[in-house]
Design a binder for these strands. Structure first.
Lengths: 304, 304, 304
DNA sequence: ATAGGTTTTGTCAAGCTTTTGTACAT
DNA sequence: ATGTACAAAAGCTTGACAAAACCTAT
């Protein structure tokens, strides 16, 4: 199970690899449903690597004296449990919370594949905004708290954050194209946490905005430079530390005189917003983005 | 060292593991009720890991000089009853009816965002089966009736149906994976309504089945082709028009001779089911899927 | 006797280097498409180093007991994976072609999981527009042609189309929200092929539009109803059959008098577009969507 | 503990089809 | 170079068989 062996095996090769005769493999299929190969155009059985693993488990159980029918049952059952492909009725009441627990469990164990699997499933079933607001942001919040309490190592936190960042960046792809109003997004100097800002940007983009993303630790001067080159309808700045916001208050105020500025993150207080003339974002990033009004909606005609 | 023992052992292997002869194990069962094995289809005793532990305790007592009858009593007494916690079932459908009204209002107005928002909320709180049976299927039914009465335009109906289809296909993602029994799902020729069939498939998948989905307007002949490539345990065909079922009755009967076939949708009548040798699905798709028995193990052995 | 064929090998030399006879190499090309040599002026096959490597992989798989058809598939698929790992984009479509082959192989075999795996991998590496234009649309086109030639059964076609539709509808989720211009999308009456229209809609949405999707087989009259309820900037109609367009020409012309209409699909001809006063979409759906101008771009603030 | 019968499970065979490397004619 | 043909190898299905393992009852 090392590499991406997407290929199919025919029965002879499977037999050779597992040490079970073709006749026996067919009997196991017929009697216990151990294998369910697809067929070639001409009807030959085609097996996958997963099938090979299952036969191995079967043989293993047999060598331990388990009767064939039971060995097959066990070999099959191992699959229902291991890949959490099917959330086994745990917490049937709140599927999304169950998914959050699954995600946490996978990431705590450095199980990249299973984490992606959970995210794939959830993204297929829910709107992105919901996944961000009700799954990923609470998860990241919880992760941060567990890290603060020492329940999670730096390695686990980094692993999880980077995996989530990768997914968010994937969702963000192409967010700068289109014709809507444009927002410039940046973390204030010294601020490294950009996941909330990414969620904000994704939500905003899905409401018709174009996003110019400057990311963590951005000097205010850089923002001036960006604004000079792009018609900008909104600048969004975030920081988790109020002191860092305060340290940049004058520059922010200066910026806010020429362009609408919104201030978010745990370090953004009402007092600082008032002082800088910025708009305060005081809810979760998704809700905050949904509340941003669209500037000067174009009046369209139905008549031509 | 622990989960391998989830399987059953036959008497020979139990004897080998515990050092007690099969005859002795049977005698202990008969005389002291030490063991209460389940039986295989053919009558073989099947023991669990708990049985193995009990035999070990028995032998242990015996080696300490305790008389057999007393040893058995002790070995049995050691077992304490561990009551299993039962997950509470949430079943209040009143909020779902409210959600159905919200959904209808949103879709009637071509409000995609609100419709998705309702569905996200409901899916986050209820089991998928519940959402399908108590929200979406009633909603679609109602939509159809309003369309027939001319209260809803084709545009509204198309818009709503396509949005719901998108959500259902999202929930369906990955339903072909796994190693459970496989069902091939298709609408009969000329039939375009596949939403009920999607709901059926999603429910069936969550009960361990694999789904191969062929969708609307599928010629019967092509199902033979699919079956030739996939080990198929069930074929499900639906149509809303009895005449369309009747027009294909011979082909369905032919199919039913080689594979179990179930017939659903408003066009599936008891008479047609009897005529074609198909199983009739005469409830809502979710309930119908829940009633499909899982083929425990392919019991196709050639006994005579 | 010949020009210097820089870096190219002829079949004899390739045979000598790889140990496969020329006849065998030709058979592999014919049966599995393993090689696609360019030709010399006189018709000789000219192979590259990549071809040689591919033959080596093929032989390697064969020596491991993999059947020839599978060995070829793997040898080809290896090309899809390797370059995809590298930083992406820049219109290198060769890996996408390989991915298309992988996708075709998976879907032909009703392998849902592997098909999703290919799509996940590609979507993680490329822009959606690129995946649509260079992978999915060519794939669907090819699928249609193979179906017409009888190389693919209706079951395979249905299965593939429904899986792709599920992915597209997933990508489309939320396309009706936001504040951009709105487009109403529909297939003309009798038209069931909506995948191209979905691709069109997704592209348009990513450029800032809002989409109202009515889907297959939509009566023109009902579009009026939708337009009456939504401020509509564009109506897009498609059909693969010119006769169906012609049959609705008057209604389309009527519609086009009050709202901009674009006409796409294989059934949309310049003549019909001219007759109905509709705009002709005569490229692939993605390119067509990218060429749609945004109506009356709002002049945004950013006072300077 | 033994006898007599049943179930389970690995193996085999007959008759036919598909796959695949190689050969040959044009 | 192309296309067709061919035959060996590998597979398929159905049906059957026998040894091992297990049953009950005496």
């Amino acid at each position: 199970m090392s590499e991406r062996e997407l290929g199919f095996l025919r029965i002879g090769e499977l037999a050779r690899r597992t040490g079970a005769s073709p006749e026996l493999l067919r009997a196991w299929e017929r009697r216990y449903g151990l294998l369910r190969p697809t067929r070639s155009q001409g009807g030959f059985r085609l097996y996958t690597a997963a099938d090979e693993a299952r036969v191995r488990r079967m043989r293993d159980h047999l060598s331990h004296g388990v009767a064939a029918a039971e060995a097959a049952r066990l070999a099959l059952a191992a699959e229902a449990a291991a890949p959490a492909a099917r959330p086994p009725e745990v917490a049937a009441t709140a599927p999304l919370q169950a998914a959050a627990r699954e995600l946490a469990a996978a990431l705590d164990q450095f199980q990249e594949e299973q984490a992606h699997e959970v995210l794939d499933r959830v993204l297929a079933a829910y709107r992105i905004e919901t996944v961000l607001r009700d799954l990923l942001i609470p998860y990241l919040h919880d992760l941060g708290e567990r890290w603060a309490r020492g329940e999670v190592s730096v390695a686990q936190e980094h692993f999880a954050a980077n995996l989530v960042r990768g997914r968010l960046l994937g969702l963000a792809r192409g967010w700068g194209q289109g014709h809507g109003p444009a927002a410039v997004l940046a973390c204030l100097p010294a601020e490294q946490h950009d996941l909330g800002l990414l969620a904000f940007g994704i939500t905003l983009q899905r409401r018709g905005w174009r996003i110019v993303y400057l990311g963590p630790d951005t000097p205010i001067a850089t923002i001036h430079h960006a604004i000079g080159r792009i018609t900008t309808d909104l600048v969004v700045l975030t920081s988790t530390v109020a002191e860092h916001v305060a340290a940049n208050a004058d520059a922010i105020a200066d910026l806010a005189r020429s362009t609408p500025v919104a201030l978010g993150g745990a370090g953004a207080t009402a007092e600082l917003a008032a002082r800088t003339g910025a708009h305060l974002l005081d809810t979760d990033p998704v809700t905050a983005a949904e509340r941003i009004p669209t500037p000067a909606a174009p009046r369209r005609s139905g008549r031509r």
